[in-house]
Simulated scan of single mutants.
Amino acid sequence: MTNTVEAPNSGYRFMPGVSQYSCGIGALSGFAIARVRFSEPVPLKEGFARIADILKAAGRPLTAFGACELRSPAQFTEEGFRAFNEIYIKTLIEWGVMRDGVNPVARSNVCPKIDPPQEPCFHAFSYTVPAAADAPASFVVAGSGESVEGKGNYRDHIIAPGDTSPAGMLAKAKWVLDEMERRMSAFDGTWKDTTAVQLYTLHDAYPVLESELGRRGVLRNGLTWHFNRPPVVGLDYEMDCRRVHLERVI
Score class of each variant (00 low, 15 high):
E6A: 15
L177E: 03
S22G: 14
S19K: 05
V244F: 04
R37C: 15
D115N: 15
R243V: 07
F122R: 03
G145M: 06
Y237Q: 05
P207N: 11
E79H: 09
G26I: 00
A58N: 09
R107A: 15
V110E: 05
G217N: 11
D188Q: 08
A133C: 06
P207L: 08
V140K: 06
A32W: 00
N103L: 10
G11K: 02
A49N: 14
V249C: 09
Y206H: 10
G47N: 02
F125S: 01
L223K: 08
A64M: 12
W175D: 03
L55R: 02
I33Y: 01
A135D: 09
T194P: 02
G145E: 08
S29A: 15
N3H: 05
P117Q: 13
D188W: 00
K56E: 14
S22N: 03
V218Q: 01
G222Q: 08
D115K: 12
G26N: 02
W191A: 15
V233C: 12
S185K: 09
D178C: 10
G222Y: 01
P104G: 14
G152E: 07
N103H: 11
Y200A: 15
S185D: 13
A167T: 07
V233D: 13
E238R: 04
A27V: 07
R13K: 13
I89V: 14
M239P: 02
K113Q: 11
T201S: 15
T91K: 12
A83F: 02
R243N: 14
E46A: 15
S108G: 10
K172E: 04
V176C: 11
M15L: 15
G145T: 03
S144A: 14
D156T: 09
F122G: 01
P161I: 07
